[in-house]
Amino acid sequence: MLAYPHIARVLATDEALDLIERLREMHGPLMFHQSGGCCDGSQPMCFTQGEFKTGSSDVLLGEVDRCPFFMSADQFGYWKHTQLILDVTPGRGSSFSLEIPLGVRFLIRSRVFTEDELAALAGD
C-alpha cells in the first residue's frame, strides 16, 4: 500500500491563499486556468467563477481553497509529472487575471512528483 492517500496536483502558498481570500471578498467565487503561453507567458489566471469558459479540452487539476484549477489537456501532457504550487509575486503582469490591478500577480512554482506519487496518481 502506498503512503500517499491523496496527492494534490496543485497547492498554494500562504501568500496565495491570502490573496485568494481577498479576491473572493471583492469578486465572489473564483476559478483558475493555467495559461498556455498567451499574453504574459504561461501563468495562472484568476477569474470570477464561470467567467472563463472551460470545455472538453480542459483538465480539472483540483481545487485551491475551493477554487477549481484548470489547464488545457495539451499543456497537461507536458505538466502531468509536476505538482503546481500557486504563489504570488509583486509586479504587474499583462494578463486579464483579477489580481493584476492590485500590483501583484500569481505565478507557478513546481516540483516533479516522485515515482511513488506518480504511481498513486495513476490510480486516480
Rank of each mutant, 00 (worst) to 15 (best):
L2A: 08
A3D: 12
Y4F: 15
A8S: 13
L11N: 13
A12R: 05
T13M: 07
D14H: 09
A16K: 01
L17D: 07
I20R: 00
L23Q: 07
M26Q: 15
H27Q: 03
H27K: 06
G28P: 06
P29T: 06
L30P: 05
L30A: 03
M31A: 13
H33I: 10
C38T: 14
C38Q: 14
C39G: 05
D40L: 01
G41P: 08
S42H: 11
S42W: 08
S42E: 12
Q43D: 11
M45V: 13
M45R: 15
C46E: 02
C46A: 13
C46P: 01
Q49S: 11
G50P: 01
F52I: 05
T54Q: 10
S56Q: 10
S56R: 12
D58A: 10
D58W: 09
E63N: 13
R66I: 04
P68L: 09
F70L: 06
G77N: 07
Y78H: 15
W79D: 09
D87T: 15
T89M: 12
T89A: 15
T89H: 08
G91K: 07
S95A: 12
F96W: 13
L98N: 02
L102N: 00
G103Q: 03
I108L: 15
R111I: 06
F113D: 02
A120N: 00
D124P: 00
